[in-house]
Amino acid sequence: MPATPARPQLLIFDVNETLLDLGKLQLAINQEFKSETAFKQWFALLLQYSLVDTVTGNYHNFGQIGDGALDMLAQGLGQPARPAPRKKELLALIAELPPHPDIIPGLTALQQAGFRMITLTNSPDATVQKQMAYAGLTGFFEQLLSIDALRRYKPHPDTYHSACERLRVAPAQAMLVAAHGWDTAGAQLAGLQAAFIARPGQQTYPLAPAPTLTGPTLPHIARQLLGK
């Protein structure tokens, strides 16, 4: 069994799918486009074109890209583009998502153990504030950070470094907690530790370093951090 890594001074949590269950949004998009794969296609487009914006310096916030991705999804499925009010209704659901069942127990254990915790999300500032309030998670976090001010999306190294600088913690003393292999890869390649929550359907990137910690739920990660 590998040695337990040094206790991180800061835990940086991804939000969408890591903390929050996207099931409500997934169901709505799949029903809207009458396809069981519509949500996965839309989310892949959202991530792909956030990276296009980052690489080209042509920044739009996550909501704007999500709106454009709905148009691209409709086109790809051979369907008409949805009216702006309907797209707004669908996208508004991202601020009304519950936490995964494991999240409050896991965050509670980590908070009681004295860990400093923040969020770092690709969603805009206003969105993450609404998300955390709706999910009842705000009180667990020292700060709710977004990449919006930086105008670069994760997994750009600057996103992780900026969060560490803001909290005055060296990258090696910080750990990203995420359910996305691209996110844990980005954090580790930026010099951070990473914990991967292996939610169903999620995989790590085999060409990146293996996550520092891996577990099926946040309590599993918490127990490893606490040496239990």
Score class of each variant (00 low, 15 high):
200 P>A: 05
128 V>H: 10
126 A>M: 10
170 A>I: 04
183 D>K: 11
171 P>F: 08
170 A>W: 06
137 L>C: 03
144 L>G: 02
147 I>C: 15
202 Q>G: 01
184 T>K: 04
149 A>W: 05
155 P>V: 09
201 G>Y: 06
120 L>K: 02
152 R>F: 08
169 V>K: 10
130 K>A: 14
175 M>L: 08
152 R>P: 00
164 C>A: 11
154 K>Q: 08
133 A>Y: 00
132 M>W: 05
166 R>T: 13
193 Q>Y: 06
170 A>V: 04
155 P>N: 08
182 W>I: 06
129 Q>M: 12
198 A>T: 00
192 L>Q: 11
202 Q>A: 13
148 D>G: 12
172 A>F: 05
149 A>D: 14
163 A>R: 03
136 G>W: 12
203 Q>I: 09
178 A>K: 04
186 G>W: 09
153 Y>L: 10
177 V>N: 10
164 C>Q: 06
182 W>H: 09
201 G>E: 05
176 L>R: 07
150 L>E: 12
196 F>K: 03
180 H>V: 03
125 D>N: 15
156 H>E: 15
201 G>F: 01
176 L>E: 08
168 R>Y: 00
136 G>H: 14
176 L>K: 10
186 G>N: 07
155 P>D: 10
179 A>K: 06
134 Y>M: 09
134 Y>T: 13
192 L>P: 06
185 A>L: 11
195 A>S: 05
136 G>Q: 13
175 M>I: 04
203 Q>W: 11
183 D>Q: 12
187 A>C: 03
202 Q>S: 13
129 Q>C: 05
128 V>L: 07
192 L>M: 11
124 P>R: 12
163 A>K: 05
132 M>Q: 14
197 I>M: 06
148 D>S: 14
163 A>F: 02
157 P>R: 02
201 G>K: 11
177 V>E: 07
185 A>M: 09
124 P>F: 07
124 P>G: 03
141 F>K: 01
150 L>W: 02
139 G>L: 13
137 L>S: 13
141 F>H: 01
165 E>F: 00
128 V>P: 03
123 S>Y: 13
128 V>A: 12
200 P>S: 04
130 K>V: 04
146 S>G: 09
184 T>L: 07
185 A>Q: 11
153 Y>G: 05
153 Y>C: 06
130 K>N: 13
178 A>F: 02
142 E>Y: 11
144 L>E: 10
136 G>L: 12
